[in-house]
């Protein structure tokens, strides 16, 4: 067991200059820029869904998509705020209104158009391509978020992972509805809720372990 004065001496000897983190909103903007780049690349590669312009004129679709995008933006900001020790934990409530709007809109569409789905409403090939979009969007964004949030590991790992994965999930859901014809109700439900549940669940399972992996080294040496 090292004595506290010795510990202080060794820490002071290791005090290399560090770069201060930029303000949380700015860091969220950087991450969102990355998200925009990923979405643009996917759009160039896969092409936007053919009926996007018509669909955007339908209020239900437009509201649902805007709400998903807004959830992503707000959750990203909340994640970076919550990851700092001296900001209130209540920032985690920031994306809640947008999230409610998004989920209730998806639920409403399901209720009103339940009959509209036929057996031809979904095809396996489309589902596989959807999955590819999901991985291509979700993976880089999750990794970037994880690395950017690594300083939250010793503080509020759960809240930060939750917000981060919500942001990734919302952006991914937006990407899915941009690129794929998934308006059959069950598909909407599956992809929107499924994506959100998938990312939040994965974060819950592996978040802490992944955080340990990228966390600043001195922290877990003594555990």
């Amino acid at each position: 067991m090292i004595k506290t004065p010795d510990l202080i001496a060794s820490l002071a000897a290791n005090a290399t200059p560090v770069r201060r983190l930029r303000p949380p909103v700015m860091r969220a903007a950087c991450w969102l820029l990355l998200a925009a780049v990923v979405l643009t690349l996917l759009a160039v590669n896969q092409g936007v869904r053919p009926d996007l312009v018509q669909r955007l004129q339908e209020p239900a679709f437009a509201v649902s998509m805007t709400a998903a995008l807004l959830t992503g933006v707000l959750a990203a900001i909340a994640a970076f705020l919550v990851s700092l020790p001296d900001r209130s934990r209540l920032w985690a409530l920031l994306p809640v209104p947008a999230l409610m709007l998004w989920l209730s809109n998806v639920g409403y569409q399901c209720l009103t158009q339940w009959v509209a789905i036929g057996p031809e409403g979904m095809s396996f090939g489309e589902a596989a391509r959807c999955f590819a979009t999901l991985v291509l969007t979700g993976l880089p964004l999750s990794l970037a978020m994880l690395v950017m949030l690594r300083y939250a590991a010793p503080l509020r790992p759960t809240a930060a992972t939750f917000m981060g994965s919500l942001a990734v999930a919302a952006i991914t859901a937006t990407a899915l509805s941009l690129f794929h014809v998934i308006d059959a109700t069950v598909m909407i439900l599956m992809w929107n809720f499924g994506t959100a549940a998938l990312f939040v669940g994965l974060a819950g399972l592996f978040g802490r372990r992944m955080f340990r992996w990228v966390a600043p080294r001195t922290l877990y040496a003594r555990d």
């Binding site: 820490l11 201060r20 983190l21 020790p85 001296d86 300083y151 010793p154 503080l155 966390a215 080294r217």
Partner: peptide, 24 residues
């Protein structure tokens, strides 16, 4: 002390120090 050392990047000098420390 170890935690403060490993996340000293997260302190913003324009904000008060004590709340940051107490939260950690």
């Amino acid at each position: 002390l170890l935690t403060v050392h490993s996340i000293r990047q997260t302190y913003d000098p324009t904000r008060p120090f004590a709340p940051w420390l107490v939260a950690i």
